[in-house]
């Protein structure tokens, strides 16, 4: 969040009068810039703090009841190496965004709304071991920050070629798109990424998702604006296999993860949460039938 502060007296102070004021110009400019920065930071911290107050992070990794049961479906989250990590993400990695609450809340919805025999606890997989092949559905958050080495990109391609399904989510704007595709194109450049048409089966396998809205992250609170950076238009895109089946579902300029994570929060609009559930449920059912 940016706040503009004006200092009318500054112009008077900086008005050149010659003599002593000429050699005071530089220090004053520095002082003004510092004040501007401090004010912005203060505003940001205050805004962010407000969001955090309304949407308090709860990172409870205690296994939920039923986690030990062996089931047909597991929600597998991909762990990946970051491009450049800043702030707290440098220690945790972008892959942990919304983890694990978003996954578990989503799974509660999946269990309640479908007949999928799903495990209530998420699993974490990576592209280093072969464990990923035991989870034909994988979710990756913030792939706009991923930096897949060649070997991992190749493994991801193998995963897809065998029949795996990847759902990407929560990356925004031109810059993050380029970072996303930079890694993806290491192994998937042979086929283009395309927009998913409204009549595609993925939008109708259970719910009819003809009227879709942009699902914002909580950073957009109070959601008068629903986009981040220059990601104004939400894009439901896909990388299709040679048979035309969606193999990688790309949710660009939207944040399903936040919607699942905060679906139980009264400050997060229900319409976004509902669509986020419906979209992911459709994607999972599609993945299990195509």
């Amino acid at each position: 969040m940016a706040v503009t502060v004006s200092f009318p007296q500054a112009s008077a102070i900086l008005k050149p009068t010659g003599g002593i004021y000429m050699h005071m110009r530089r220090p004053v400019a520095v002082l003004m810039a510092a004040c501007l920065f401090a004010a912005s930071l203060f505003a940001f911290q205050r805004g962010y703090g407000n969001i955090r107050r309304l949407f308090p992070e709860v990172d409870d990794e205690t296994p939920p009841p039923g986690a030990q049961e062996k089931t047909e479906f597991y929600f597998a989250r991909l762990r990946y190496p970051n491009v450049r990590a800043t702030g707290i993400w440098a220690m945790r990695g972008s892959w942990t965004v919304d983890y694990p609450k978003a996954d578990r809340q989503f799974l509660q919805g999946l269990l309640r709304l479908t007949r999928i025999h799903a495990n209530p606890m998420e699993r974490v997989v990576d592209l280093i071991s072969d464990e990923i092949f035991d989870y034909p559905f994988v979710y990756v958050v913030e792939p706009g920050h991923w930096d897949l080495p060649d070997a991992q990109a190749k493994k991801l391609r193998e995963f897809i070629d065998r029949g795996g399904f990847l759902m990407t989510d929560d990356f925004h704007g031109t810059f993050e798109w380029e970072l996303f595709t930079a890694s993806l194109n290491k192994a998937f450049a042979d086929r283009p990424i395309v927009d998913i048409e409204d009549d595609d089966p993925v939008f109708h396998v259970l719910y009819d998702l003809n009227d879709r809205v942009q699902v914002p992250g909580i950073v957009n609170y109070p959601f008068q604006k629903t986009y981040e950076y220059d990601g104004i238009e939400p894009k439901w895109r896909a990388w299709r296999d040679p048979k035309g089946r969606i193999a990688i579902a790309i949710c660009f300029n939207m944040d399903q993860g936040d919607a699942w994570e905060w679906a139980d929060n009264p400050h997060y609009p229900e319409k976004y949460a509902s669509q986020a559930y419906r979209t992911a449920i459709n994607y999972i059912l599609y993945a299990m039938t195509h």
Partner: peptide
């Protein structure tokens, strides 16, 4: 199938 499962996907494929 009585419920979605991976077997169906891969049989279809």
């Amino acid at each position: 199938e009585g419920e979605p499962r991976w077997e169906m996907k891969f049989i279809r494929r």
